[in-house]
Computed example of a mutant assay.
Amino acid sequence: MSETQSTRSDNKDKKSLYKKVKEKLQTNRVETIQGIEIEHRVIPLWIKFLILLVLMILLFIVGTMIGYGILHNPFGVFNPETWQHIFDLTGRRS
């Protein structure tokens, strides 16, 4: 019996610790300056831009593989000859 009571009290301590940390994070995010509440970002803006850039590159690669893979081998999109052929078709000189 004492083991179950101790584990229950440990769970309550963990929950209360979680709640304390959550409350601390929420209170640190909002700051009042001259009567105006300012909310700070949880994730910095430069990290959001970095994530966006990585996702754009990943989606470009996946999209070209799907588009090229309809008629050919999807991994053929990584061959330089494929891109040279595409540039020749579009009239762009390399």
Rank of each mutant, 00 (worst) to 15 (best):
R8D: 04
K15H: 10
K19R: 15
Q5L: 07
P44K: 15
R92M: 02
K24P: 00
F78W: 10
R93Q: 14
T4D: 09
G91P: 00
N79E: 11
R92V: 07
S9D: 13
R41H: 09
Q34K: 15
V54Q: 11
S6Q: 09
L53T: 11
D10S: 10
S16V: 11
K24R: 10
S2M: 06
G35P: 02
T7Q: 08
H40S: 13
G35L: 01
F60C: 07
N28V: 04
W46R: 14
G67N: 14
N11M: 10
F49H: 08
H85T: 07
V54F: 12
M1Q: 05
N28T: 14
L71A: 12
N11H: 12
L89T: 09
E23D: 13
V30L: 09
P44Y: 05
E31D: 10
D10W: 10
K12Q: 15
K20D: 03
V21Q: 13
S9F: 10
Q84H: 11
L59C: 05
L52V: 02
N11E: 07
L50F: 07
G35A: 01
K48Y: 06
V54Y: 13
L25E: 13
Q26H: 09
I38A: 07
V42Y: 10
I51E: 10
E39K: 14
K12G: 05
I38Y: 15
F75R: 08
S2I: 07
I33A: 07
V54S: 10
I61E: 07
R29T: 04
R8P: 00
T82I: 01
E37W: 00
S9K: 13
H72V: 01
K24F: 09
H40E: 05
E37N: 13
M1D: 03
E23H: 14
I66K: 12
V21T: 09
T32D: 09
L89R: 15
L89Q: 14
K20F: 06
V62E: 07
W46F: 13
G63N: 07
W83M: 05
I36H: 12
N79I: 00
I57E: 03
F75C: 01
I43F: 11
W46H: 15
D13R: 15
K22H: 08
E81C: 00
G91M: 01
I47N: 04
T82W: 03
I51C: 03
F78E: 03
L25R: 13
W83S: 02
S94E: 04
L71R: 15
V42S: 07
I33V: 15
